[in-house]
Design a protein around this nucleic acid. Structure first.
Lengths: 131, 131
DNA sequence: TATTGTTATACTCTATAACTATA
DNA sequence: TATAGTTATAGAGTATAACAATA
């Protein structure tokens, strides 16, 4: 099972890369942008936990996106150690295009799966991940 | 879907590591040993293709296993450029123990999946990997 | 003292290019 | 010239430790 998980994940990554590389997005970047659209102004520690990455790696990720003007770091006035992240208009515009492309990625991956199988697959993956 | 594939694969890797680290085995090493048990004396190029890794990375993998006395490199008499790999008795003995542990890994992963779901999952993963 | 975020660093997996020795 | 394997190296993704600023 581990073997096929590896190959499937590899295929998923390649599908993502094919569609998203022109937009300069990796899976990690995309996940962060989506999270900020859904709920802005979260602290980085909270975001790292949601994305299941280390805060140190999120710092690098966020630094890159900020340098490209896609997100902003906002100092929390109540706790000046904390940094809250939000999308810039440029980030929002990019995300709009990215979401269309991402639908294509999902379609590529699920091309040979009927909808019911796809639903079961996602459920099974979540359960394995949470074990 | 890519997100959950990543987390599931991570969980699978951790489950493997917990059970197999005492034996000094990684997923790649285990896959190679299993392949040699199933059909010995294959050329490395052929093995790399079966495992879906690059020949250059297989060379390193095989080098390590040979240094530990688990496999042997045998020069092909018909084509002295080619190298064929086979298990040593030590490799065979380790593999026997490893296979018992691997059954535990699979059990850990499939713990919350009924057998039918597990079958469906494997089938879906194979299809995604082959896309 | 403890916590937030950052930097530096290391380890694994994967990929490419250059090399050798055969063919 | 082409092929099998090897080496060196570089790029992602992920992990830990040490640090500065703030609490």
């Amino acid at each position: 099972m581990g073997f096929w998980l590896r190959l499937a994940q590899q295929a998923a990554f390649e599908a993502f890369h094919r569609r998203m590389a022109p937009l300069g997005l990796t899976p990690g970047r995309m996940a962060l942008l989506l999270l900020l659209e859904e709920g802005p102004d979260r602290r980085q520690a909270e975001i790292a936990e949601a994305l299941r990455i280390k805060p140190s790696n999120l710092a690098v990720l966020a630094g890159g996106l900020e340098a490209e003007g896609l997100i902003r770091r906002v100092e929390d006035p109540r706790d000046r150690r904390a940094v809250r992240l939000r999308l810039t208009p440029a980030g929002r515009a990019l995300l709009r295009r990215a979401k269309q492309q991402e639908a294509q990625v999902e379609a590529d991956l699920a091309a040979r799966l009927d909808p019911a199988t796809r639903t079961m697959l996602l459920d099974a993956l979540r359960r394995i991940a949470g074990a």
